[in-house]
Amino acid sequence: MAKVSKDMTIGELITLDENIPAILMRSGMHCIGCPASLGETLEEAAMVHGIDANDLQDQINDYLAETAAN
């Protein structure tokens, strides 16, 4: 099972699973298509958007764990 960390870039995350962009957008990261955002880490992007990076990391990892279980 894949597992994400806060030091992974947004570009890495969105190529990891096709549904991760939706998780990011629901959290308030509506600029994931911006070329600059692709090089930011999850932690950096969360900070810019006022989002708790640990919570977002957990949401993504919970989704990936659920997907792997199915």
Rank of each mutant, 00 (worst) to 15 (best):
I23Q: 06
I20Y: 00
S37K: 05
A65K: 13
E12Y: 00
I14C: 04
D17S: 09
M47F: 11
Y63R: 03
N54C: 12
M29G: 07
H49S: 04
A22G: 09
E12H: 00
N19F: 07
A68W: 06
E43R: 09
E40H: 06
L56I: 09
A45H: 09
A22Q: 11
L16W: 04
G33W: 12
N70W: 06
T41R: 03
I60M: 09
I20A: 00
S5M: 10
N70F: 10
C34A: 07
M8A: 08
Q57R: 10
T9E: 08
I20C: 04
C34K: 10
E66T: 06
N19W: 07
T9Q: 09
K3N: 05
E44P: 04
E40Q: 11
V4Q: 01
N54G: 12
M47W: 10
E12M: 00
A53R: 05
L42S: 03
G28L: 07
I32C: 05
E40L: 06
M8D: 08
A53I: 03
E43W: 02
K6A: 02
N70A: 12
R26A: 11
M1V: 12
N61G: 05
Y63N: 03
H49P: 00
L38I: 04
C31P: 09
I51S: 03
L24G: 01
Q59W: 14
D52W: 13
K6F: 00
E44R: 03
S37L: 09
G28W: 10
S27D: 10
I60N: 04
A65N: 13
E40A: 07
H30L: 15
V48F: 11
G11W: 03
H30F: 15
E18P: 01
T9F: 06
A46D: 07
A65D: 14
L38S: 10
L42H: 03
D55M: 10
H49W: 02
R26V: 07
I60L: 12
M47N: 09
G39Q: 13
M29W: 03
L42F: 00
G50P: 00
I51A: 05
D17A: 04
S27T: 10
E12S: 00
L42E: 01
A53T: 04
L24M: 04
E66G: 13
S27Y: 05
I14S: 05
N54F: 13
P35F: 11
R26G: 01
V4I: 12
G33F: 10
D17G: 08
Q57I: 03
N61E: 02
L42M: 09
A68I: 01
A65Y: 05
M8L: 13
M47L: 11
L13V: 02
S37G: 08
V48L: 15
V4T: 06
G28E: 10
N70Y: 11
A22K: 14
E44S: 07
I51R: 02
T67K: 15
H30Y: 14
L56Q: 06
C31Q: 08
T67P: 05
D58R: 12
N54S: 14
D58V: 11
A65M: 12
G50C: 01
C34D: 10
N54E: 15
G39L: 13
A45W: 02
K3S: 11
T15S: 01
I14A: 05
D7I: 13
N54P: 07
A45C: 13
A68E: 11
N70S: 12
G33C: 14
